[in-house]
Amino acid sequence: MLYYFYDGSFDGLLTAIYQAYYRGETPSRIVAAGDFQESLLAEKVYIRTETEQSQRVYVSIQTKISRQALRNVFYVYLSELPDAGTWIYEYLRLGWKIGKEFDRMLSDGRVLRVHKISQRVNGERHRMMGLIRFRCLEGNIYYAPISPQYNIVGLVIPHFLDRFPGQNWIIHDVNRKIGVFYNGETWSLGDMDLENEIELSNGEKLYQSLWKEYFKSIAIKDRVNPKLQKRNLPVRYWRFLIEKGQ
């Protein structure tokens, strides 16, 4: 058994795939260094990230397989599931062998697995576009804390850039401690930890209470259905929703 370890970055993962190819090896697992539980039997190889190598894999996925496959790979990577690296590797090997048509082979477990996870990540990206709630802070900054299951904060940037180009906004993944900052002109994605309490702007409480009132009034009492509500809006997302929070 041969295990490859990478540093947890997307470049690291692609470097590992590059190395496997050029060393003529087929690792049975490719895992992020932090995710691994010791196994005595495994032979371990630690891969050092080389952006030149990862870049070549990146281009090769795009040109030799498809842009769609590249997107699937990136989304599965963002799922941060412990086996994501291994699944991506197996998916890509098949892709390079068969070509872009391989995405239709849904009865193949390697393809189906990646599609399912990629869909789930994409689903959360889409869901978050609706569930992100900005609070207007002192200084006219719109701040939204989130805690998504997958690492999707980067995926929602284009949507909000187009939607709120004239607004200063921050989207903060509080669990991963990363955030997107936009100042009305440029944006950046980086580490973020909030030490001070945030201070709401003057009008903020008014709109929050209007929204809560609206949320209450729009439900039809004769059709109340908490089960359906929870299925559509899982409780794990309630924490930062104005209408559901304290």
Binding site: M129, G166, K221
Partner: peptide, 21 residues
């Protein structure tokens, strides 16, 4: 200089107590 856009598939923002989006 505008505010807002729209997305072909539509976006749900919340679900009321009756489960409707």
């Amino acid at each position: 200089d505008g505010l807002g856009n729209s997305c072909y598939s539509g976006i749900c923002h919340s679900w009321a107590d009756d489960g409707r989006c």
